[in-house]
Design a protein around this nucleic acid. Structure first.
Lengths: 172, 172
DNA sequence: CACTAACAGTTAGTGCACTAACTATCTGGA
DNA sequence: TCCAGATAGTTAGTGCACTAACTGTTAGTG
């Protein structure tokens, strides 16, 4: 009980930051810290919640969310190497390796050695994997409905996230 | 090779959605699907990338990102039950249980039975856990610097994420 | 008072997600 | 030609994150 609770709801809940960085040259460093704490927290929670929203929708397709992302990539272009998929969806080969084996076990992809480069794998959609796309078309509208956000909000979110990805992906 | 690749970069890369839902009453359902695919993808990648940004910064503190979120909650209010922490950062008790044992093993918290309710645990900061807060104050500015985003962008992101959390958290 | 509901937390099992260490293949010179 | 270094993927080990099934405690109800 050393530090008394500042709010009942917990982590900096309703402290709306005032946007005035253009008239005030220096933002209070204290506010900056708090804002960022909220952003890291909000990003993690929002991602978990939204992925949780996908779970029941993807379940009839027999896919998890990362598996769904891999399938989206393959529906765009079918023979891809592990490395290429990893670059597209920002995942390490070590993460994809077992995931792709599960997709193979489910009969959605094949994992064959690339003819030009025996090191690489050619991940190819099977007929079954290609057909699954039809069912997957039903997924996005269900998610949008469950999310219950307006298109403008979705677009604003997407814009912000794109900036974050642009700022974080190339540097690493 | 049934579907030829629409773009070399993969998942709907630069298809900026046109915001005209107020003059056109019906948005093309096809565009809607694509936008959403981008949002789910962008959210997952952005969260992974940003958490990855925290990794090296939190490493000297001996914390992982979810552990950091738990500590943030405890720095706000110290004796909390497992359930309360879970509500604050949207995690299942089953996820927190081993995590809290690791924090206890690290000497940052204690896990004692709650005096009023023998079912509940009172998770309390130790002196060491309380002192770690001083080091943690260095974390947010480092992240903001590594992110390299303007404050306005951060605030816009935070606003969008808050709407997502509001839309997803209570409904479930 | 007993007995059932609800509740708090834990355990087991599956599946990401990362780093580090490894095998196998390919490539560019000396 | 041979071989050092880069590259593609796998494996091992740690730590989330979820659901389902479990133990133990509390509280409400007949």
């Amino acid at each position: 009980m050393t530090r008394s609770a500042s709010t009942p709801t917990g982590i900096r809940p309703s402290r709306r930051p005032v946007t005035r960085s253009h008239d005030a040259p220096t933002v209070s460093p204290d506010d900056l810290l708090k804002l960022d704490q909220q952003v890291c927290f909000a990003l993690a929670v929002a991602a978990r919640n939204v992925i949780g929203l996908y779970r029941p929708v993807l379940e009839p397709l027999g896919l998890t969310h990362p598996q769904y992302l891999v399938m989206l990539a393959l529906w765009e272009r079918s023979p891809l190497t592990v490395r290429e998929i990893g670059r597209l969806i920002s995942l390490e080969p070590a993460t994809l390796s077992p995931l792709l084996k599960r997709l193979e076990a489910a009969g959605l992809v094949t994992r064959d050695r690339h003819p030009d480069d025996e090191r690489a794998l050619a991940i190819t959609l099977t007929e079954r994997g290609r057909r699954l796309r039809e069912q997957a078309l039903e997924v996005p509208p269900q998610i949008v409905e469950r999310l219950g956000l307006r298109i403008e909000d979705l677009e604003a979110l997407h814009g912000s996230l794109t900036r974050v990805i642009a700022a974080t992906t190339p540097a690493d």
